[in-house]
């Protein structure tokens, strides 16, 4: 047995020229060890594919589950009505408006700040310890749990700045939450702009800002926008930070200004989930369908942008 398991070596350790026929074993007469390894390899491959498909299968089950639960509730009235104590009369008018408000405000606040930071780090920053600290810090901020941003928003925007449970407090909180995400995406997009472009522009006597504004940013913009949209879709799905700033309350109106109270889809969904009773769960599922449809639309835009971006880069 042990002799059989020894590899090819035992039979032809050192074929020498004095043995020109070199008694060799035929190919394909595989050793038991080889067969075992081949079987093991097949099993491993199977395990890999099964594990990989678990993610995709769960995704399917989740989507189908939500769809079956909620589709019956999804009608124009559901979109147009305010929340109600009665599940069959409740709608998502307020959270739908709130979500769009939050989306616009968060985008308007975080986009310029993030792009500014990314431009500074890629085009302006000297290579010194301050830059390094800023960069490390951004990477770490991206890993801070979202609820911690909620605590910060509560302490700084709601209480210290006295903004209360307003739209602007919510938008500011979510803006700082997605700031590091957009900065890193924007940095990557700016970095992908070939240096030759910059050198050509500098060669024509352009200033740093002219080079950045007229050459680098336009080329990096599809990538920056893709990153921004993906980050905003994260903001749209966030619940915990907004609970922290106290946005979870019964809201039966659409916000008219920055200091108005508001609610958003994830908050409304959470509020319905936390109620006992099948009927509220069903309208929660219906609201989830709307939320997922919105996220899907945002992602589709991001993918289209990214594909165009990819083409531009390969040319």
């Amino acid at each position: 047995m042990s002799r059989e398991r020894a590899p090819a070596g035992s039979e032809h350790t050192s074929p020498t020229p004095s043995d020109p026929t070199g008694a060799t074993r035929a190919l394909g007469a595989s050793l038991p060890n080889d067969r075992r390894r081949r079987r093991l390899g097949t099993v491993f491959l199977g395990v890999c594919f099964v594990a990989t498909s678990i993610g995709a299968i769960t995704l399917m089950v989740l989507l189908v589950d939500v769809f079956l639960d909620g589709i019956g509730q999804l009608d124009p009235e559901f979109l147009g009505n305010y929340a109600s104590r009665f599940a069959d009369r409740a709608g998502i008018r307020a959270p739908l408006f709130g979500t769009f408000w939050i989306l616009l405000l968060t985008g308007a606040i975080s986009f310029p700040l993030s792009v500014g930071a990314a431009v500074y780090l890629e085009e302006y920053a000297p290579k010194n310890w301050i830059t390094r600290i800023i960069q490390v810090n951004i990477a770490n901020l991206a890993g801070v749990p979202s609820i911690v941003y909620g605590i910060l928003g509560l302490a700084v925007f709601v209480r210290w700045m006295g903004l209360g449970r307003s739209l602007i407090a919510g938008a500011l909180t979510l803006s700082i939450l997605i700031l590091p995400v957009i900065i890193m995406a924007a940095q990557e997009a700016i970095r992908a702009v070939p240096d030759s472009i910059r050198q050509a522009a500098y060669g024509l006597g352009a200033t740093r800002w002219q080079v950045t504004r007229r050459q680098v940013l336009p080329m990096a913009m599809p990538g920056i926008l893709t990153g921004t949209i993906l980050a905003l879709s994260r903001a749209v799905g966030e619940t915990a930070p907004l609970i922290m700033i106290g946005a979870l309350s019964f809201i039966a109106f659409t916000p008219q200004g920055l200091t108005d109270q508001f609610t958003v889809l994830p908050l409304q969904i959470y509020s319905w989930i936390s109620r006992p009773g099948e009927d509220f769960h069903a309208i929660a599922a219906a609201a989830i369908i709307v939320l997922l449809a919105l996220l899907l639309a945002m992602n589709a835009v991001a993918i289209v942008l990214r594909n165009r971006f990819g083409r531009v880069r390969s040319n």
Binding site: G55, G237, L295
Partner: peptide, 8 residues
């Protein structure tokens, strides 16, 4: 999968 909100 990564983009689905945690509340979902």
């Amino acid at each position: 999968l990564a983009g689905i909100p945690t509340v979902v």
